[in-house]
C-alpha cells in the first residue's frame, strides 16, 4: 500500500493577523503528481512554505513520509524549487556546479564535506538537466530559463522521492516551459517521483498532473481529473468552457 508522502490535518496559518490557510486537510501518496492551483493570494505558496517548515503553523499537523515535520530530518528525500530566489544577486560569484552541489548538503552532518559520491551525483544531475556544458558559468550570467534549470538540477541532485515546485515556469518561454514539464512528467513516470506543482496555469497542469488541488485559503477541491471534470464546484469556478478546456487536454 502506498505511503502518504505528505499528510496534513487541520492546518491553519495566519500572517500578521490575516488567515492565509484555514483548516487544510489532505494527503498525497507516493507516485502522485498533484497540481496545486487557485487564484492569486489563495495561499498556494504559503502552503508549500508550511510543508517545508519555512512557516510556523498556528494549528494542525504536518507529516512527511510518516514523520512529524518538527522531527523530520531526511531533507535529501525532498527536492524544492522555489518561485524565485529570496535576494538574488546577479553578481553572486558562484558557478552552476557550486550551486547544484549545495543540494547535497542535506545528506551531510557537521562538519559537512563533499566526496566522490557527491561529485558523481552533481554530474548526473547536470547531465539530466542538459546543463553540463555550462557548469563553470556564473549563475548571475544565466537567463531566467537556464537559472531555473540549475535550480531544478539542485533540487534533483539527491534523486528525491518528493519534488515540490512553486510556480517554476514563470521565467520560462513557451518552448522551454514545455520541455520543463516533459522532464517532470518523465521523472514522475520513470522514477516514480512524487510531484507537487504549484501553478497559476490551470490549463497546462491538466496535461500532466494526476490529481488537482484547488485552494482558496481552504481546500475547495482535491481529487483526480475525472472527479475534477465531474465537479459542479469546479464548473462554478472555471465555467463550463474553462473546465472543458482543462479536461479535454488531460
Amino acid at each position: 500500500m502506498p505511503i502518504d508522502v505528505i499528510a496534513i490535518r487541520g492546518l491553519t496559518f495566519s500572517y500578521q493577523g490575516n488567515e492565509a490557510l484555514k483548516d487544510v486537510t489532505f494527503a498525497i501518496t507516493a507516485g502522485d503528481y498533484v497540481g496545486v492551483v487557485g487564484p492569486n493570494g489563495s495561499g498556494k505558496s504559503t502552503l508549500v512554505r508550511c510543508i517545508l517548515g519555512l512557516n510556523r503553523v498556528d494549528r494542525g499537523e504536518i507529516t512527511l513520509f510518516g514523520v512529524h515535520l518538527e522531527t523530520f530530518g531526511d531533507w535529501h528525500r525532498i527536492g524544492y524549487l522555489p518561485q524565485g530566489l529570496q535576494y538574488f544577486n546577479p553578481n553572486f560569484p558562484a558557478t552552476v556546479e557550486e550551486i547544484v552541489r549545495l543540494g547535497r548538503l542535506s545528506r551531510k552532518r557537521f562538519p559537512r564535506r563533499f566526496d566522490g559520491d557527491d561529485r558523481g551525483a552533481v554530474n548526473r544531475s547536470l547531465e539530466l538537466m542538459g546543463i553540463d556544458a555550462i557548469r563553470r558559468k556564473l549563475v548571475g550570467e544565466l537567463s531566467g530559463g537556464l537559472l531555473q534549470r540549475v535550480l531544478l538540477a539542485r533540487a534533483l541532485v539527491n534523486e528525491p522521492d518528493l519534488l515540490i515546485l512553486d510556480e517554476p515556469t514563470t521565467a520560462l518561454d513557451p518552448d522551454t516551459r514545455e520541455s520543463f514539464y516533459a522532464t517532470l512528467k518523465d521523472l514522475n513516470v520513470r522514477k516514480g517521483t512524487t510531484i507537487v506543482l504549484v501553478t497559476h496555469d490551470s490549463a497546462t497542469v491538466g496535461l500532466y498532473a494526476s490529481r488537482l488541488l484547488y485552494l482558496d485559503k481552504r481546500i475547495i477541491f482535491y481529487g483526480t481529473f475525472p472527479e475534477f471534470c465531474a465537479s459542479a464546484d469546479m464548473t462554478g469556478i472555471f465555467g463550463h468552457q474553462g473546465q472543458h478546456l482543462i479536461c479535454r487536454r488531460h
Binding site: 531533507w75 530566489l85 553572486f92 558562484a94 548538503l105
Partner: peptide, 20 residues
Amino acid sequence: LLYHDLFAITFDEQLAATSG
C-alpha cells in the same frame, strides 16, 4: 568548519533551510 553552511545561507536562506 561552517563554510558550506555559510555559503548556502548566503546564496538563499530558504533553500538552505530546506537542506536541513
